[in-house]
């Protein structure tokens, strides 16, 4: 995997921040996921190598956390909440819209690799329920009418 210097610089920055290389593991995994969208076995190996941590240990840590993906994801990750507040406000109905418009179902990716969808258990935006995160952007007060307009902004 061609590792761009930016990530390497950022990881070296992490190493300066923490006393122990093990402490850099989670932030380093985040960096790779941000850059490539998911954590491939090669990415895990690379993290292990850079931080001098056994690769099996890296795998154990990264697979423990739900926020890391271990299969290729779309260009944009939709994290839609269907927990109590969002459910009451119609969050679940938005799933049908996504399926109808993009053929997108939870934990899957559209064939054109544009979107991946993950159902979240509360993203802390109950005041604007129903809500979703697209990549790192929060969108609240979603309706069956406005959700497509929001998503169309993501190419």
């Amino acid at each position: 995997m061609a590792l761009d210097n930016k990530i390497l610089d950022e990881i070296n920055e992490l190493k300066r921040k923490y006393e122990d290389e093990r402490s850099c593991l989670l932030p380093a995994l985040y960096l790779f996921q941000r850059e490539y969208g998911w954590l491939s076995p090669e990415a895990l190996e690379r993290v292990a190598e850079i931080l001098n941590i056994p690769k099996a240990t890296v795998k154990g840590v990264s697979t423990f956390y739900a926020m890391f993906s271990h299969k290729p994801m779309g260009r944009h990750l939709i994290q839609l909440c269907t927990n109590v507040a969002c459910m009451i406000m119609g969050g679940e109905r938005l799933l049908d819209i996504l399926k109808g418009r993009y053929g997108l179902e939870p934990n899957l990716t559209t064939p054109d690799r544009r979107f991946s969808l993950v159902i979240m258990e509360c993203i802390g935006a109950c005041d604007t329920a129903p809500a979703m995160l697209v990549d790192t952007d929060l969108h609240g007060n979603l309706t069956e009418e406005n959700i497509i307009g929001i998503l169309e902004r993501y190419e």
Binding site: P54, A56, T57, K59, G60, T63, F64
Partner: peptide, 14 residues
């Protein structure tokens, strides 16, 4: 991990 030091195994997922 602790005795052999090979660290070749992990508990994957949770």
């Amino acid at each position: 991990d602790d005795v052999q030091g090979a660290s070749a195994l992990c508990v994957a997922n949770r």
